[in-house]
Design a protein around this nucleic acid. Structure first.
Lengths: 186, 186
DNA sequence: AGTGTCATGTAACTAGTTACATGATTCA
DNA sequence: TGAATCATGTAACTAGTTACATGACACT
């Protein structure tokens, strides 16, 4: 259904749809080729999109998908009728942190550093999107972008505080006490 | 592996583990019976946990799982060696908002109201956990709880702003213009 | 010489969830 | 009387992802 929404704003190939989705809704709705191509095929089978094949040399023929009037109708019907299911959130990183007292403190600091990098990178990409499209977005697209911006900013604030607490915990335990069990096991 | 972590803090039944996980890590690591029972079985098969069956009448026999020394070792090894994969976040609600201009404004306000209720309920539950266990938590458990607290507080702040913007958009468009396409299609 | 972009697609796999099956006891 | 709690487990299903297969062209 998401694909229909994007196609309602202009005809695209599967490849273009993936790139477009990655930048716009990627942070809350991932989609791989393995899900996009089969979905487009089934939409075409239902007559919700039309396919126009453009012959190319040196690469597979381009397939430009265009939404049909039935597709538009179906899309709007799905917006009206579908109850969005609850957000899904899952974090293995937090599970590691949860069991932090069984962890090597240095490893923990390393893990959170990686976590921070990933958040920073994602925030950066959202800022790029803001600069590039900020003026042409609908107010609704703007709201979802703001969601992402505040999401990652909040996350980074929390990370900074956790790093401080982790460092003071490490200092309190003293440098000589670091990963005693790991040393003993060898 | 998460199950081993919980069992390292005390022996439990599968049923108890589910309840325990729901309250403590539920907001970032969901687990259903359909995943817990088979996992416990395979852990027992690998000798990482020991099972003690308690005969009961009127309900299935209780199976109390206890971690073995090999289980503890394996758990710590997994903390040391496993790279936590990136967080997973997915929101159908945001997809609805993203296409807000094709939506009926009243329906949108309704959807965000439901979204707010869910967030408030989750925040409330985390506050319950804080009151009940705040004093006995490890500093690491405290950090993950704070993650949840700041996560949902940030979310609620964003929601309030979106509700304001949505209402002013609805006011600007005027009440007579509501869902014009939906009316016309019938 | 090597990386990134364009461009399609499938098969195998992963990691679960949901629904079902069973059923006594306790509390409001 | 009805809901919640305790307690286990499986089968069928869902919704994907990852890796593979193919390969030219442009840029650095």
């Amino acid at each position: 259904m998401a694909l229909l929404g994007f196609l309602a704003r202009g005809s695209r190939t599967g490849y273009e749809l993936k790139a477009l989705m990655e930048r716009s809704v990627g942070f809350f709705f991932g989609a791989s080729y393995g899900s996009i191509y089969p979905a487009l095929k089934s939409l075409a089978g239902e007559g919700l999109v039309r396919v126009e094949e453009v012959v190319q040399s040196g690469r597979p023929n381009k397939k430009i998908y265009t939404i049909t009037p039935e597709g538009r109708q179906r899309f709007r019907a799905s917006l009206r009728e579908e109850e969005p299911s609850g957000d899904v959130f899952r974090s293995e990183f937090l599970m590691h942190l949860f069991f932090g007292d069984e962890h090597d403190p240095r490893r923990l600091l390393e893990l959170i550093g990686e976590y921070r990098s990933r958040c920073e990178a994602r925030l950066e990409r959202l800022r790029d999107v803001e600069e590039e499209f900020g003026k042409t977005m609908t107010p609704y697209q703007r709201m979802t972008l703001d969601f992402g911006l505040s999401h990652f900013r909040g996350r980074l604030e929390w990370i900074r505080e956790v790093e401080d607490r982790l460092r003071s915990l490490a200092a309190r335990d003293g440098p000589e006490q670091r990963q005693p069990r790991q040393e003993a096991q060898r």
